[in-house]
């Protein structure tokens, strides 16, 4: 049926996608990745405000209770953002891929005792009762595996995220100012200490997606481009000086990281998206092979 290339096509059942998404939803909501845990632990040593240290200590205890007693880290278990990187040599069998993801979310949120926080229509606002639909980002890549990341996104911080359509003349300083402004305006509402994901370049929607993807990076990662790394460092320094602190009650631990991802853009534009995440920066990943 696929003459010539059929030998290389790997079949992966949609049921396995459902199973993986289900498990990843629960895993992400009960336990943070080690880099995020370490960042919280370390901040207890470096935070200058006594109240800030007391809050960070409670946040660390919260993580322990969540893991030990299987209580979600935060009651806002998020809208499920699912990233699929699908190898171009993969054929999904046994059903509709999108529905397989939604079914995984449906089962994960029910079996994991996670909060159902999704309304079917933004104006009518009736809860769907099962946290579906998910937001799905699909990318076709070389290879023969399916890589899945589930990143439940809480809206305390999502609401404080911004897109700025800057002018080319705004340059590096404009990008820096946009990042710091978004964090300053987010303040206590975004549950600091935050992780700041930034997308620069592309188009209106491309920069927003880059910003979301930047939140998935290890917390200690830095851009490998020197001029971008400098903006990350300057932004983090200026954010620290805002004195927002843990829970927005003052202190030096306002953001753990500023991650910037870039893309080519148009001669007339400099799009900047700032996607803010709280200290509960959740994501869990798995690779499925045939």
């Amino acid at each position: 049926m696929y003459a010539g290339s059929s030998r290389n096509v790997k079949e992966i059942s949609a049921h396995r996608i459902t199973q993986a998404v289900q498990e990843l939803c629960i895993e992400a909501n009960l336990s943070l990745s080690d880099d995020m845990k370490d960042a919280l632990l370390q901040a207890q040593q470096t935070e200058s405000s006594p109240l800030g240290r007391s809050i960070l200590e409670k946040l660390c205890r919260n993580l322990e209770i969540a893991e030990n007693e299987q209580i979600p880290i935060c009651q806002d278990t998020g809208m499920a953002v699912v990233f699929l990187r699908i190898g171009q040599d993969v054929h999904i069998t046994d059903g509709d891929l999108g529905e397989a993801v939604h079914e995984g979310v449906r089962r994960g949120y029910e079996q994991g005792y996670l909060r159902k926080s999704v309304v079917s229509d933004p104006i009518i606002r009736k809860n769907t009762g099962d946290n579906t639909p998910a937001v799905i980002h699909t990318e076709i890549v070389p290879g023969d595996t399916v890589h899945i990341t589930v990143a439940p996104k809480g809206f305390g911080s999502e609401n404080m995220s911004r897109v700025f359509m800057l002018k080319p003349a705004d340059g590096e300083q404009g990008v820096l100012d946009a990042i710091v402004r978004a964090v300053r305006e987010a303040g206590p509402n975004a549950c600091p200490p935050m992780v700041v994901g930034v997308g620069v370049g592309g188009t209106f929607e491309k920069c927003a997606q880059l910003a979301k993807e930047a939140l998935l990076l290890p917390v200690n990662a830095h851009s490998d481009q020197e001029h971008i790394r400098r903006i990350e460092e300057l932004a983090l320094e200026q954010i620290r000086a805002l004195n927002i602190g843990p829970a927005g009650l003052g202190g030096t631990t306002t953001a753990f990281a500023v991650h910037i991802k870039t893309y080519a853009t148009h001669i007339a534009g400099l799009p900047v998206a700032v996607n803010i995440c709280c200290h509960v920066n959740r994501h869990a990943s798995r690779e499925i092979t045939a």
């Binding site: 409670k58 205890r61 206590p188 829970a247 709280c278």
Partner: peptide, 26 residues
């Protein structure tokens, strides 16, 4: 403290829905 829901749940000893059960978590 935002994002400390597991910790804060330990300080709640009773919970009873008294209105608008149809709103689920709300």
């Amino acid at each position: 403290i935002g994002g400390a829901g597991a910790l804060l749940s330990k300080a709640i000893t009773q919970s009873e829905v008294i209105a608008w059960e149809d709103l689920g978590t709300e």
